[in-house]
Simulated scan of single mutants.
Amino acid sequence: MNLSGKRIILTGAAGGIGYRVALLLAEKGARLALVGRNASRVEEICAEINQRGGLAVPVILDLSGEGAAEQAMAAALQSLGGIDVLVNNAGIMDFTLFERQDPKRIGQMIGVNVIAPMLLVRAVLPHLLKQDGGRIVNIGSAFGSIGFPHFATYCASKFAMRGFSEALRRELVDTQVGVTYVSPRATKTPLNDDVTTRMLEETKTSMDAPEYVAAQIVQAIERDCKEHFIGQPESFFARLNGMFPRLVDGGLLKNTRIARKYAQSVNK
């Protein structure tokens, strides 16, 4: 896909990865509707892009709110005149013992990470089908292929998005609407709090720079990829986990025990 002139909705634009994806898309000539609830930050990013000669408009929304998907779609249509690509990037994460996780937080995470992006797809899809072209891009995680201990709810949400993306791609096979699922591994962003970061460092978990991940996401869109997994050995273990999960159980045992001592200090 040539991104020049493409009209794109990007959620989670205020985050570490989303901000850099927005800049790269703008550099490619895309016209952007940046969705987020942090009004000052989203507006700041739009101003930066517009000052560089790009086009970005802020759409200030809490995606977990009722009717948010339709509002985002309406705002994008009004400001951009149409939609060619939806990038579902927004997400939240907890690192904690599951028995300590607040039930409300479980519901919130499933709402933001699963229900909101699905409803956005549902709002955008009729428009893409009518114009006979477009792409839906769902940003997942290595945690959507491998169940990591102490990230149970986050893993559940990302497994759901991977399954949704796969099913939707197959459902749309006879249309001109494509589906791309991108699976980053751990990334150095504020999504990881201090405890999580210390745990990742002690377990020697590789963490990519957000600039690198953003470049991989944009490249996957340009290449019309169906799936794109970022980083080794995580991509290998994701495939191994699908075939031989007990081998991965053993491989994670040492890091599981290290992570537990950090998770026990967290109460969410």
Rank of each mutant, 00 (worst) to 15 (best):
G65H: 12
R170L: 13
I115Y: 14
V121R: 01
F95P: 05
T256A: 14
L97W: 07
S145A: 07
I139L: 15
G134C: 01
N50A: 02
A116E: 07
N88P: 09
G111D: 15
S265P: 00
P233W: 07
Y212Q: 08
R52H: 08
G134R: 04
V213Q: 08
D249E: 13
I221F: 00
V114F: 01
A72E: 03
P103M: 15
G163I: 09
L23F: 05
I45L: 11
F236K: 03
L23W: 04
L200G: 00
E227A: 00
K158S: 01
N113S: 11
I9L: 01
V114N: 00
D174W: 14
A215E: 12
R169V: 03
G82S: 08
R37V: 03
S79F: 02
L240Y: 03
A90E: 10
K158D: 01
T96Q: 04
V177H: 02
V87P: 09
T197H: 13
S235A: 15
R169K: 02
F151L: 15
C46P: 08
F143L: 11
G242W: 06
E99R: 12
Q51T: 13
L120R: 02
Q101P: 04
T153H: 12
G147V: 11
D249N: 09
G5L: 07
F164G: 06
S157G: 13
F151E: 14
Y212T: 09
F164L: 01
F229D: 08
I60L: 09
D194E: 15
G144I: 09
F244S: 06
T187M: 07
I92T: 13
L25P: 05
A74Q: 11
Q108Y: 11
L25N: 01
V177L: 06
I258Q: 00
M199T: 02
K204Y: 03
T180Y: 07
F98H: 14
L247C: 00
N192D: 05
D174E: 14
Q71W: 07
G133S: 06
Q101I: 14
R246L: 11
G29R: 00
Y212L: 10
G107H: 06
V59K: 11
D224P: 02
A209T: 13
R100I: 00
I230R: 04
R162S: 11
P58N: 07
A22T: 02
L24A: 14
L200R: 01
G134T: 08
E201V: 15
G107L: 09
E166I: 05
A30Y: 02
A186L: 10
G134S: 07
V57N: 02
K261R: 15
G250E: 09
I146C: 09
K104T: 10
G16I: 10
Q131K: 13
S79L: 04
N89I: 03
I115L: 15
V218A: 04
N255T: 02
P184K: 10
R31H: 14
A259S: 15
L80K: 13
A90N: 10
R37T: 08
G36A: 14
R105N: 12
M207Q: 10
